[in-house]
């Protein structure tokens, strides 16, 4: 399941990370991802990710508020995000420690 989310800056992972802070609609997700991760998700990219995550049961749609529909993480989504984030942290820590051991170039 983790493989479905992708790695690093893949849109599904960014969407999961954004929704970990609470339910959000599309526009709020794009703003959050831009502010927190510095990645600008286009609307087609965002809804491609939302579709994939919803199909896999990692997020669920909430009742629409006017025309905007918020999404929230499911328990499976939380688990996948936790697994992926742990893997990424391990890679990041390994990379930083090895770079530090090499010293300045």
């Amino acid at each position: 399941m983790t493989d479905d989310v992708g790695r690093w800056s893949d849109p599904p992972l960014l969407v999961l990370a954004s929704l970990a802070g609470g339910p959000k609609h599309g526009y709020a997700i794009t703003q959050d991802v831009a502010d927190q991760a510095g990645v600008r998700l286009g609307p087609g990219t965002l809804y491609g990710a939302i579709r994939r995550l919803e199909d896999r049961g990692l997020i669920v749609a909430l009742p629409p508020e006017q025309r905007r529909r918020p999404y929230q993480l499911t328990a499976a989504g939380e688990q996948v995000l936790a697994e992926t984030a742990t893997q990424l942290r391990q890679v990041a820590e390994l990379s930083l420690s090895r770079l530090a051991a090499r010293g300045p170039a």
């Binding site: 609609h25 599309g26 526009y27 794009t30 286009g42 609307p43 087609g44 990219t45 965002l46 809804y47 491609g48 629409p64 006017q66 025309r67 905007r68 529909r69």
Partner: peptide, 29 residues
């Protein structure tokens, strides 16, 4: 419906280049 609302939100205050980028990403999607 929600996608159209998002496009309206994203293009409302965007520059011409920003609108083109949003729309091209929407078409690619």
């Amino acid at each position: 419906d929600e996608f159209a609302a998002l496009l309206v939100d994203l293009t409302g205050s965007a520059t011409f280049r920003g609108r083109v980028r949003v729309m091209s990403d929407a078409v690619r999607g």
